[in-house]
Design a protein around this nucleic acid. Structure first.
Lengths: 224, 224
DNA sequence: TCTATCAGATGTACGCTGTACGCACGACGC
DNA sequence: GCGTCGTGCGTACAGCGTACATCTGATAGA
């Protein structure tokens, strides 16, 4: 029986680029980019490793395609609302997409061959700002500031090696343990009286900073 | 001659953790984190790969130590100046350190075992803000906003796959080439009339955004 | 001065990775 | 029945991190 690697049914659904990319995204969501090996993706698809290479050129090409999937999940700022709510909604949507696909954070803006969803997204954001009265230099300022903040926040949030307050507590102990007590009083106070307080959720810092930025851009837009 | 792998002189300088870490930083600065293999670091030190393991526990431990080297290069906000110039100087210093050590950007805040330079840095920043009148919640807001922006900017800047305007031009052609002309009019206008203009330097966007953030924090501090 | 000890450098080896290359096999047009 | 072709597979190789056992050169004690 040569066609042993069938689906749960006897019929074998043919491998496609889309199926490969989707399986890879799913795997990376769980195992990170480090854990994303061609062999694992192949196993998830019940297929031999080399079968993937019929549909993607190599691992880098696969990652290119995965990034475009993430871009396709971001809400485009297309509605009739003003630029501020539109940018706010896009920022939150981007943040959520990056939270779902943490492996993507460092890669979103690094593609040599950006996919259609990627280009479409940037085109829509720029268009929205332009039509709201931003001149081109101001678009550059705003886009750089907004995306810097969004990606940076996602990056630091993602990298936090804890998910719950209990984790955080354990880690704080672990962190300070090799050092004399009170060597870092300001940091200790900050961690103990604020970050470790029940109810503190670092995620909520995002909105605060976002409003500061949006207000700042609004003010700059008025005086330009 | 058993001790063939000597220095340029006959005397062999002993391997130390510091020498290993320094060589690794140097190598990563040139070759990136991907290119940082234990074997290459060993070769740079004229030493067998396994010799490194006498001084670092494993690759992860080596990277931990490398990150602390980067932290040690950031100017601490300790002077008598106000919080605003102090934060500005720290931000620029951090940006420059990340530009020198691009491989570090995604890792700075992800260490399970932060080194002394790391903790000292955070302690100093928090201390500066506290003594300038920021309450603890406001410190969290400010730190999150500032570092999010700094790391995010470094990330997007690093990822830009070009260094000169000529590179950028070539890449823009390459990017749009697979798509119909005018499919992305806003993006095309933005790239052609602004980003590709001689004299445009993306790096300078950093200061603009930084001032928006610092002004926003100052305003928030006043109304709190 | 001879010898025991031991830290530090090494060599070998294993399981993992991406992927080049050639082959096998089912589907299809004639 | 027979080429032709697209798709999946098997083999193979170089390079990776690192476990483990071994070797060696310097030092300490007699």
């Amino acid at each position: 029986m040569p066609v042993a690697t069938s689906d749960t049914e006897g019929t074998r659904t043919p491998l496609t680029r889309e199926r490969v990319v989707q399986a890879a995204v799913q795997h990376a969501d769980g195992a990170g980019l480090e854990g994303l090996t061609m062999r694992h993706v192949a196993k998830a698809l019940n297929v031999a490793p080399m079968a993937l290479y019929r549909h993607v050129a190599n691992r880098e090409d696969l990652i290119d395609a995965m990034i475009d999937v993430v871009f396709s999940e971001i809400a485009l700022p297309l509605g009739g609302a003003g630029w501020k709510p539109a940018m706010r909604e896009r920022a939150l949507s981007l943040r959520d997409a990056l939270a779902r696909h943490r492996w993507a954070i460092g890669l979103m803006e690094s593609r040599l061959r950006p996919g259609p969803a990627n280009l479409r997204h940037h085109d829509a954001v720029i268009g929205k700002l332009r039509s709201a009265g931003f001149d081109i230099a101001m678009v550059a300022h705003a886009y750089s500031l907004l995306d810097g903040y969004i990606y940076g926040f996602a990056l630091t949030r993602m990298n936090m090696p804890f998910d719950t307050n209990a984790d955080m507590d354990a880690m704080a102990q672990h962190m300070f343990e090799p050092f004399p007590a009170n060597e870092y009083p300001n940091l200790a106070e900050f961690v103990n009286t604020h970050v470790l307080k029940p109810g503190y959720d670092y995620t909520e810092e995002f909105e605060y900073g976002l409003e500061v930025i949006l207000d700042g851009l609004e003010a700059a837009l008025g005086t330009d």
